[in-house]
Amino acid sequence: MSATPQIPPISQIEGKTIIDLIASGKRLDGRGLLDHRGFDIKAGIIEKANGSAHVSLGKTKVLVGVKVEIGEPFSDVPDQGVLTVNAELVPMAYPLFEPGPPDENSIELARVVDRGIRESKMVDLKKLCIIPNEKVFVVFVDIYVLDHDGNLIDASAAAAAAALLSARINKFEVKDGEVSLLPETMPLPISNIPVTMTFAKIGGPIVLDPSLEEEQVMSSRLTVTIDKEGRLCALQKGGMGYMTVEDVKECVRLAMEKAPRIRGLILEAVGYGKD
C-alpha cells in the first residue's frame, strides 16, 4: 500500500533559500535552471558482466550491470527475447534506504527505465530469439544505486543505456535443437538509444536534473524519454504536487531539444559503433 512518505528533514532556511534562488533564476550549486550536473559515464567496469556502466551525475552514483542468460520466452511473444529491469536502492547509498524487498520507489525507478528501453525498442528483442517457443536470450538489467544525491532516474537510465550498448554476448549455433555457445562474442542488437530527462517544479519555475535538496522541496517532477528520432517514448509524473498543462508541454519541448547532446555523451563514453 502506497503511503505519503516521511519527508526527510531539510531546514526551513535551506528550503526557502533554494526556492527563492530558483525564483530568481539561480541554483544553490551555481547551475542554470535547465543545466544538468556533470555527467561522467564509464562503461565496462565489471568484467564478469556482459555489459556494465558507472554513471556519476553530480554526486549521484549509479552502477548498472547487464547479464545475459539463455531462458524461455513469454508464451504471448514466443519469437522474442526477454528484457527485465530491476533496481536496488542499496542501503549504503542513503540513510533512509533499507535492506529488504524492493519498495515502491525502487519499483518505480526500474519501471520508468524499463519503459524507456522497451518503448524506444532499444534492444531488438526479435534478434534475441534462438529457437522460437523454446530458447531465447534473457537480458537482465540490474540498476545499483550507490550514492543518492538526487535524480536517480536520469543517472540510472543513462547507465542502463551505456551498459546495454557496451554489452557483448556469445555467438551461438543451433544443431538438432541444441544450442551451443561459440567463443566469439557480438554486441547486443541495438536499434535505438533513448535519453531520459527529469524536470522538477520548484515554486513556479521548472528545473532540469534536480539535486537531492531540490527533490526535497519540489512539488512534482516529470520524466521525459526521447528516442533517437526525436519522438516521445515515455513519460512519468511523480511527486505530490501538480504541473500545469503549459509546464508539461514545456518540459517535453525542452527534452526534445536537449536529448541529442546527452545521447552524444553516452555514445562517446562507450565508443559505440567502433567495431
Binding site: R115, R118, E119, S120, L222, D227, G230, R231, L232, C233, A234, L235, Q236, K237, Y242, M243, T244, V245, D247, V248, V252, R253, M256
Partner: peptide, 13 residues
C-alpha cells in the same frame, strides 16, 4: 493542472 501523467509507446511532438 495535471496530477498524473504517464506515457508509453511512441508519440511525435
Amino acid at each position: 493542472s495535471v496530477t498524473l501523467l504517464q506515457m508509453d509507446g511512441v508519440f511525435t511532438h
